[in-house]
Simulated scan of single mutants.
Amino acid sequence: MQEIFNRYINHLEVERNASAYTVRNYKADLLDFFRFLREKKVATLDEVDRKVLRDYLAHLVRRGIVKASVARKLSAIRSFYRYLVREKIIEANPIKTISSPKLDKRLPSFLTLGEVKRLLEAPDLSTPQGLRDRALLELLYASGLRVSELTSLELGQINLDSNEIRVWGKGSKERIVLMGEPAAEAIKVYLAQGRPELIGKKKSNALFLNRYGQRLPERSVQK
């Protein structure tokens, strides 16, 4: 089972070019499922049937796992079993008839203009980290990029003459994103004054750097 799992993760990383965030979540969700199988003495993947899967769903509910997380775990298992069938490791897909839980509809949350203004003005512009954060927030607000796309930006993807950014999203699809003058100006200041302080004598093509001169990780932005 471990060998098949490793092959599947490699498939996600290499063939599907999934983001590090997606791979990390799929790993965690599948390992959680495998732990359940071991507890239930299910030794092989082709022993998993509809009853085992429904027992797993009940197990998640008893643990107090919210519907959104249950749906995500099922999505990971569903993708894994599609891979198993396609690679002819198993013949039938037991999760094919299992439905994901209906998610509660929530109204989208958004920031008011005042909150956006306070957020953009929060960074301390007397520090290189503050200059970086101002540029990052301005770009995030102006472009609507995903955090993963933002932190993966390279210097060569930014064109400050035309205020354009070349972005590779899911599946390595390229698109051009425009940014306004405030974002472009904040990036220029960061590149001139903040980034040189952060990178020091190190070398990196990453646009946004942490205090060690390395690419800024997603989790730092999400905080």
Rank of each mutant, 00 (worst) to 15 (best):
F34I: 14
D49C: 11
E154T: 14
G180L: 06
R219G: 02
E3C: 04
E91R: 13
I9N: 07
E3H: 14
R63G: 15
M1S: 13
L145I: 09
R24M: 06
F36Q: 00
A18N: 14
A76P: 04
K102V: 11
V23S: 10
K96L: 11
K96V: 08
A206K: 00
F33E: 06
A71W: 06
L37F: 05
R215Y: 06
A18Q: 15
S143I: 12
L103E: 02
M1K: 14
L111A: 05
L111N: 09
L209A: 05
Y212H: 14
R195E: 00
G194D: 03
I89Y: 10
L140A: 12
E13S: 12
L136V: 03
L113E: 14
H11V: 06
V48F: 00
H11C: 06
R132K: 08
T44Y: 13
R132L: 05
K188A: 07
L119E: 01
L153C: 06
G169T: 00
G144Y: 11
R72C: 02
L84R: 06
Q157K: 14
Q129I: 15
K117V: 09
T22D: 04
L57Y: 11
R50W: 01
A206G: 00
E91N: 06
Q2R: 15
S99G: 07
S79F: 01
V48H: 05
S162H: 08
K117L: 08
I89K: 08
T22C: 01
T151N: 07
V221A: 05
N25W: 08
K102M: 12
R82E: 07
F80L: 13
L31N: 14
V70Y: 11
I158G: 01
E87Y: 04
L136C: 10
R54W: 09
R63M: 12
I9E: 07
I187V: 09
L74E: 02
L30G: 04
